[in-house]
Design a binder for these strands. Structure first.
Length: 576
DNA sequence: GCCGTTTTCGGCCCGACTGTTTTCAGTCG
């Protein structure tokens, strides 16, 4: 768990150094940070086992950064970072969350206006002082104000991808206790919402003391907010809270139903109970004083004349009515329905792992096929591939396929690409180059500030391109960071229908793009979707879990998702 | 600050876009 913290510290050093106009060192610190994030082992473990030498063997870590890692492991501080902070006493972490604001601008704002944090910045900008700083101007000031507004919108909310790994650690810790009979996440986390307020855990047990002790002594606890017999709360070092509730075995189902929500879903469910002369609360479903259900959620729903509604659907978007009619939701898409992943990067472009490594990791996941979709020319930073390089990659892919064939394996690797949609809607690679590929993904990676009409036309032009099959991360949003692009989604959906273009559900926890409401619209119109990991590292293949959660929140069935097809069916769909 | 089919200093993914300027700095990917 410490790796993430350490990487963050190193990145922060890089940012402060950039503020101080230092060259190259920031790059070194960033590189070290990113290789630490990719380690399988924790830096602490490496240090325990192999000492300093082990630290220096981490790629990108030399003598100096090893010093800092050692210092942090031993003291929990990095003196160098403290010194840098004294020079520029600004809340860099939060200031840099403002889209469009980098270390250099933060420095200007601090030196000219004494801006140290977001509040200062907001005041300065709304008083018109930001525009007067040399190098900044009125538009920058306006953009800053808008970006701060956007940040404020999701204040106190955390991205599912940030919360879930920590939540799982707590879950595992509690589950290992013999006193714990049943355990589940509840709340928005269980509903797989893209933003969650906190971690809700529900446990059934008769003896609670040991469980509560284990919970409040979790290593990442910053503060115990409350500790009781049936309910405790902790604040984690990551910044969010976790709540644990313990109930009796006979109430686990009703409590789970109650604490999973959503609020609007539960209001509707309780109304149904009331209309039947029953009462529903976290302790059970009651007929007068007699408890008639509570042990399982299924029992509760069933006694109310409803089928069991999957947590991801519990938003009062029509699921209750469907459940009343007997719909069993079993065809909703599931992780195990995915037969492949169409959006995988390799070290041919910006990925961390080789083609071979990515392919074998995908194979180990139990996929039947996989699609490599590296960047094309325009994205120089990602070493986007030229037509010629794509042909070379193709040869390597064909080699892998022959190998699989020789092993009598049906596993198959397809070659696609993620082409860039330029400002005018054209692609950064020739039709001739695209024709050689099995399929084509296109996506927007630049030019985010365009008017609605222009932006919509741009995307539509790309969708109408005869070679384009899939649009990656269609709205371009970054969760808690950047709002969706200015697109007329109705028009986009219409063209997707006309052109048989598939829209991506990008599983990267930073994106989750399309969002649930858009997915639901696609499903209703019969537009097919692709759940892709957009992996740049083999650890990221498992991110499809987030995409599946998102798809389920959008009511997508397995038949709506093209990754559930066999390779043959997928290719014939693409070629028609 | 790290790295080296460059042994010990010189190079370090780079182009588009935006908003500031009026030729370029900062940010993003």
């Amino acid at each position: 768990m410490k790796n993430k913290e350490l990487a963050e510290k190193l990145n922060r050093v890089a940012e402060y150094l950039e503020m101080g106009d230092v060259d190259y060192k920031p790059f070194a610190y960033r590189r070290a940070a990113s290789s630490i994030l990719e380690l399988e082992e924790s830096v602490e473990e490496i240090y325990d086992k192999e000492g300093r030498k082990g630290l220096e063997e981490i790629s990108g870590v030399g003598k100096n950064i090893a010093d800092k890692l050692e210092e942090y492991i031993l003291t929990g501080e990095i003196e160098h970072l403290k010194t840098l902070r004294e020079k520029f006493p600004v809340d860099l972490k939060n200031m840099l969350r403002v889209e469009g604001l980098g270390p250099k601008s933060v420095k200007k704002l601090y030196e000219n206006l004494g801006v140290e944090n977001l509040e200062d910045l907001k005041i300065a900008a709304s008083e018109g002082r930001v525009a007067e700083v040399e190098g900044l101007g009125e538009k920058t000031e306006k953009n800053i104000l808008e970006a701060i507004e956007f940040l404020k919108k999701d204040e106190g909310k955390w991205a599912l991808g940030e919360v879930l790994p920590v939540a799982r650690e707590i879950y595992k810790r509690l589950k290992s206790l013999k006193e714990v009979k049943r355990i589940s996440f509840a709340g928005s986390l269980r509903r797989k919402k893209e933003l969650v307020g906190d971690v809700d855990l529900l446990v059934s047990a008769s003896k609670t003391e040991k469980i509560m002790k284990s919970f409040t002594s979790f290593p990442n606890v910053e503060k115990v907010l409350g500790e009781g017999e049936t309910k405790s709360s902790i604040r984690l070092r990551e910044g969010f809270d976790a709540d644990l509730r313990i109930v009796g075995e006979k109430s686990f189902g009703s409590a789970l139903q109650y604490f999973t929500g959503s609020k609007n879903h539960n209001i509707k469910i309780r109304k149904i109970a009331k209309s039947k002369g029953l009462k529903l609360n976290e302790y059970g479903l009651f007929d007068k004083k007699k408890k008639i259900a509570g042990r399982t959620e299924k029992e509760v729903y069933s006694k109310l004349g409803l089928t069991l509604i999957p947590p991801e659907l519990r938003e009062d978007r029509g699921e209750v009515e469907k459940a009343q009619k007997g719909e069993d939701f079993s065809d909703l898409c599931k992780l195990e329905d995915l037969k492949g992943d169409l959006h995988i990067h390799t070290d041919w472009t910006g990925g961390a792992n080789s083609l071979k490594e990515m392919v074998s990791a995908a194979r180990e996941r139990g996929y039947a096929w996989v699609g490599i979709a590296d960047h094309t020319e325009f994205l120089r930073i990602e070493n986007g591939l030229s037509e010629k390089e794509l042909s070379k990659q193709r040869k390597e892919i064909e080699k892998l396929n022959s190998k699989f064939e020789a092993q009598n394996s049906d596993f198959y690797v397809m070659q696609g690409c993620e082409a860039n949609i330029l400002r005018d809607g054209s692609l950064d690679i020739s039709d001739k180059g695209l024709k050689k590929l099995d399929y084509v993904i296109a996506g927007m990676h630049s030019g985010f500030k365009m008017g609605r009409i222009e932006m919509t036309e741009r995307l539509i032009k790309a969708m109408r391109h005869p070679e384009v099959d899939i649009i990656s991360h269609p709205t371009g949003r970054l969760i808690k960071k950047r709002d969706s692009l200015n697109l007329d989604m109705e028009k986009i959906f219409k063209v997707a229908e006309e052109e048989n273009v598939f829209l991506e559900i990008n599983s990267s926890p930073a994106r989750l793009d399309l969002k649930d409401a858009d997915i639901k619209k696609c499903v209703e119109r019969g537009i097919k979707l692709a759940i892709n990991s957009d992996s740049h590292h083999l650890n990221q293949l498992e991110n499809v879990e987030f995409g599946v959660g998102q798809a389920r929140r959008g009511w997508a069935k397995s038949t709506d998702i093209i990754n559930t097809l066999s390779k043959e069916d997928f290719l014939s769909l693409i070629n028609n």
